[in-house]
């Protein structure tokens, strides 16, 4: 929400203005613009928050945890449980990655809920990059575990033989579209939520006082909903990653 519509209702403001990227420190490497932008600020805040929180709240000598430590351990156990339920024992190796992914998306979404903070998860390039890492990693994992037999993943047993020419392409397409569905789901949710908030915020300003109260209450309610969605999307991202890892171990 870099540019706000607080001045007046007459000025023209697009609800999409909040997703505008503004470079803060410019620098180029080999002709490529790698400017430090407001998006980068949010990423740095997210990472600093996660690392500091998980480091400062956990006292390695305390048998009885403090309240803050309980939150850290809750996050830890939540993802450990998730990974254990979906993948099983083999999943323990990927715990640091899934945990990092979950925390990064979750805190990224939450940081985006702070007014005037940029939401980097509302940018398709960021979510697509994360989803692609998961996709490539899982595909490599599948080939490492099963070799050439990994291709049998697209073959569904127990189906009449004449269905296979139809089903195998469908399976391949659905597999290849995983990074797209994974990234677009998060991106679209964040985009829609923040746009909606902004639209209602515009109503508050542009409408007369008495009717302006109504959109304001809507904003309050929607903020709660958005916080829920922020958590939910991070959870969905993590659980789908777990399921993909599981697929790489256990073919059909």
């Amino acid at each position: 929400m870099a540019s706000s519509g607080e001045h007046s209702g007459h000025e023209k403001h697009s609800p999409l203005d909040q997703f505008e990227i503004n470079p803060l420190v410019n620098f180029e490497v080999g002709g490529v613009d790698l400017a430090f932008t407001n998006s980068s600020v949010s990423m740095v805040i997210t990472v600093l928050f996660i690392t500091l929180f998980l480091t400062l709240t956990v006292n390695p000598r305390s048998i009885v945890p403090s309240r803050m430590q309980l939150i850290s351990e809750l996050c830890y156990n939540f993802i450990a449980q998730l990974l254990n339920d979906t993948v099983g024992d083999q999943g323990k190796r990927y715990f640091p990655f899934v945990f990092s992914l979950f925390m990064f998306v979750l805190i990224g979404n939450m940081v985006g809920m702070i007014p005037y903070q940029f939401t980097f998860t509302s940018h398709i390039i960021v979510t697509f990059a994360l989803a692609t890492v998961v996709f490539i990693g899982v595909t490599i994992l599948g080939f490492v575990n099963h070799g050439i037999r990994f291709f049998t993943f697209f073959y569904i047993p127990g189906v009449p033989f004449y269905m296979h020419p139809l089903l195998i392409p469908i399976e391949v397409i659905s597999y290849l579209s995983r990074p797209i569905s994974l990234s677009v789901r998060l991106f679209a949710n964040m985009l829609a939520g923040h746009t909606l908030l902004k639209v209602f915020a515009g109503f508050v300003v542009s409408m007369p006082f008495f009717t302006g109260v109504l959109p304001l209450t809507f904003i309050v309610a929607l903020t709660g909903l958005e916080i829920l969605i922020a958590f939910l999307q991070a959870y969905v991202f993590a659980i789908l990653t777990c399921l993909y890892i599981n697929d790489a171990y256990h073919l059909h």
């Binding site: 990227i21 470079p23 613009d33 790698l34 400017a35 932008t37 998006s39 740095v44 940018h123 390039i125």
Partner: peptide
Amino acid sequence: FFASQLFW
């Protein structure tokens, strides 16, 4: 800003 976003 794709490159910058990906880099950071």
